[in-house]
Design a protein around this nucleic acid. Structure first.
Length: 549
DNA sequence: ATTGATGAAC
């Protein structure tokens, strides 16, 4: 009698705990409920443990490692439990654990089911590990799961993520009933591979398009450096497409940042606020970056300061430290680095790159050496960019011999950006003998880059060796190196204007050149308040004088 | 219970 009534009580407790777990909001709450459950002997009770595992592995405020610890105490986990753990790790920072747990599962002779595969394939995709993806694909075929649409979609994504767009397309073509996810995965695959012609083609041939279709297309254009096209698609989306979300806006802000389109960027910020889009960390980082790249460092700082420090991650710190560095606000940049360390955010390779850039702008050679050494001390391996930045610091400070020695002592081969930094240092500090050597080496290293010939040509121009300067241009043409036209953007009232050197097609071209001549005249002869510049339409003046800058 | 998108430096 007693046994029956006590198991009745336990069942009641279990029911109560299950309904409380359904409303659980945080890991702290979950752990309390878990503790109560254990004290009532529910530590192997399937319905109870499943809920514990599910919340800690899948929910946003979960903790997959906690989930795994609970899982590893189970005598005989159900396939449901295995799948939850594999799913949790596939979305975590270390998707590799999904695969190792799968391996364990196979060793124990537990068979995966149709729900296990999408999580595993996703783990391979996130690892960009095609080898494991292919082996999963083989197993999927062997077990007769190859016509499951969820599995097929995850395979498309996996192949595309591994850069195998042909493999992705094969799965796509083999499908009987494709859905929006299949099309979006294919579209995103092309966009990620940088093939925007095919990406756009897929987009055009789609019957339905959702916010992800539009976002993938926009992001593809951004990643391909076609920022104006990205903005054009976004504008079209607002007219004929679905409402954008915070993910769309991240790509759009990146386009604004690269274009230097501050007013557009501000409009996008307002759009985000007005539409109540969730202010995620990623979005805030994009805002900080956009404001910094558009020259509005105050606004970047304002957004940054609005983030509570406990929520920050290394990305947003890097964005603001790098932004301050490029604005020449070196002290502030280094101060924020100290603050970052106080908050306890671990810096990474890019943090150090930003710090070295700050040192380069501030002429802080000693500090640069210090950062370079602490980078190594923290167990990181300096990349060619770190070395290039270090060369830049030394070259800007006029320590040309030190820069040269630094390059010679590196464990890696010199790269073009390094020698480029050294070359500008040589020109600025008038060591033209070294400049000539470096300039020649640079052409050898990067013979298809028009800028490298111009670089050496500039060296000859400084020492007035006009024949040699001209021969550089001839060498360039002889080798068939295309000179890419230099151009810049100016944003006026939210409209972007593009200016290409010597281009006269802009409707306000004449007025622009007139004003440019006026400005150049002022730079040479001093400011004259009374002149509006109408009579300065003189191209020769511009070309002659501008070569000096 | 399942699949598809986003941020930092060059």
């Amino acid at each position: 009698m007693l046994g029956v009534s006590s198991s009745c009580i336990t069942a009641n407790i279990c029911q109560t705990l299950l309904s409380l777990l359904g409303k659980c909001k945080s890991m702290l709450e979950l752990k309390k409920l878990h503790a109560i459950g254990i004290s009532f002997g529910l530590s192997q009770e399937d319905s109870f443990i499943s809920k514990i595992l599910y919340f800690s592995a899948v929910s946003n405020s979960g903790d997959i490692d906690y989930s795994y610890r609970v899982f590893s105490q189970l005598y005989s986990p159900t396939i449901f439990s295995w799948n939850i753990i594999i799913r949790g790790y596939s979305n975590s920072k270390s998707p590799i654990h999904s695969l190792s747990i799968f391996l364990k599962m196979q060793q124990l002779g537990v068979a995966p089911n149709y729900l296990t595969y999408p999580f595993l394939v996703k783990a391979s995709a996130r690892l960009s590990n095609q080898e494991s993806g292919v082996s999963l694909h083989a197993q999927i075929i062997k077990t007769g799961h190859e016509s499951d649409i969820f599995i097929q979609n995850s395979l498309i994504h996996m192949y595309a993520s591994c850069g195998n767009i042909i493999g992705a397309h094969k799965v796509f073509d083999s499908m009987q009933g494709k859905n929006l996810v299949s099309w979006n995965s294919m579209l995103d695959g092309y966009a990620k591979c940088g093939d925007m012609v095919l990406a756009h083609k897929v987009f055009e041939s789609m019957q339905d398009r959702d916010v992800r279709s539009w976002s993938s297309l926009i992001d593809g254009y951004v990643k391909a450096g076609e920022y104006r096209e990205a903005m054009a698609i976004f504008e079209k989306m607002q007219v004929v497409g679905p409402k954008s979300n915070e993910v769309t806006m991240v790509s759009v802000l990146s386009a604004c940042a690269h274009l230097g389109a501050l007013e557009k960027g501000r409009m996008m910020h307002k759009y985000i606020v007005n539409n109540g889009l969730p202010m995620t960390m990623v979005l805030q980082t994009s805002l900080v970056d956009m404001y910094a790249k558009c020259g509005a460092i105050e606004d970047a700082l304002f957004v940054f300061r609005g983030v509570s420090k406990s929520q920050t991650d290394v990305f947003i710190w890097n964005a603001i430290i790098g932004g301050l560095a490029t604005h020449g606000l070196v002290e502030e940049s280094l101060k924020l680095f100290k603050e970052m360390q106080m908050v306890g955010i671990r810096s990474d390779e890019i943090t150090y790159l930003c710090l070295l850039a700050a040192c380069a702008h501030g002429g802080l050679v000693k500090e640069a050496w210090y950062f370079f050494e602490s980078l190594v001390k923290c167990g990181m391996t300096p990349t060619s960019e770190h070395y290039a930045c270090m060369v830049d610091v030394l070259a800007r400070a006029g320590q040309l011999t030190a820069a040269y020695q630094f390059i010679c002592q590196m464990p890696i081969e010199p790269t073009a950006p390094m020698l480029g930094a050294l070359l500008s240092g040589c020109i600025n500090h008038r060591n033209l003998d070294l400049a000539e050597i470096v300039g020649k080496k640079l052409i050898e290293l990067d013979p298809n880059n028009d800028g490298r010939y111009i670089g050496l040509s500039n060296v000859y121009a400084v020492v007035k060796r006009w024949d040699d300067a001209r021969s550089m241009r001839e060498a360039m043409e002889r080798r068939g190196v295309k000179k890419s036209p230099g151009f810049s953007f100016v944003e006026i009232s939210g409209i972007l204007h593009r200016f290409i050197a010597h281009d006269k097609t802009h409707p306000d071209s004449e007025e622009t050149y007139s004003m440019l001549n006026f400005v150049v005249y002022q730079m040479i002869h001093g400011v004259r308040q009374d002149n509006r510049g109408e009579n300065f339409l003189n191209d020769t003046l511009i070309e002659d004088e501008l070569t000096l800058f």
